[in-house]
Amino acid sequence: MKGVRHYPGFLAVTLLCLLVLYLPLTVVAAYSFNGSTSITTWGGFSLRWYADVFTGPEATRFGQAAWNSLTIAIIASTVSTVIATAAALAMIRSGRFRGKTASYALINLPLLVPEIVIAVATLIFFTTIGLTTGYLTILIAHITFCIPFAYLPIAARLSGIEGHYEQAARDLYASPWQAFRLILLPLLGPGILSGFLLAFIISLDDFIITNFVKGAGMETLPTAIFGSVKQGIKPNIMAISTMMLGVSVLFVSLSYLINRKGRPAR
């Protein structure tokens, strides 16, 4: 029955929606290959601004910022994934218990509180306990807000795996730890990897919270880009942006493919 599902014009709106979402990114990616020093005129295809990012006058600054961003993202996403996996096992596998709703609310708290409010609260907290803002404070903040992003795919995956598999292993004299490591963990793997990748992107992309808790002299890639953009959009910024865009698209695609491929057949 195509009749009741079809509305004239909805295809056009969908294409408009995709155009709106992709046009600005595509234009910036295209201009990052502009050979001209002016951002307004087109000077032919060139990779000079990519070279400029790595060897130009701002190379050291962006290099340091990229290193900070990358190490923070790796540590924060690893730690938050471990925490989220443990939480998911308790939330999905241990039945009803007192405080389940509260635990669920707590896991999702970073998604409910507006980002700018998290930023303010975190800055106030670190200042009050006397922790100097810098690498460590950024890392702690990132671990905290990455937890729900890691949790969602892991919990979704876990609730799709029935308990029978582990039960069978235990009936065959596997210890609980063996049943977990040899049966549940491999089944849960794609969910964990997917959660890790999402947490990684969220950490890599964060600007608002990082900008509050980074302290003076400390930069991650987004805060360095923001600092530059304030003085005008330069071509090297478009090159960096395009590279970050590539990384995000790559990681989301990986997360998507892993989750799809590893889904148990029904």
């Binding site: 234009v27 910036v28 987004p222 880009i225 923001f226 942006s241 970050m244 698209v249 989301v252």
Partner: peptide
């Protein structure tokens, strides 16, 4: 759906800068 989700995962700062650029 995937096409709709990708932009969400792209850095908001970069997306806003892109809009400012065009």
């Amino acid at each position: 759906l995937f096409l709709i989700t990708i932009p969400y995962w792209v850095n908001l700062l970069i997306r806003t800068v892109s809009l400012r650029f065009i």
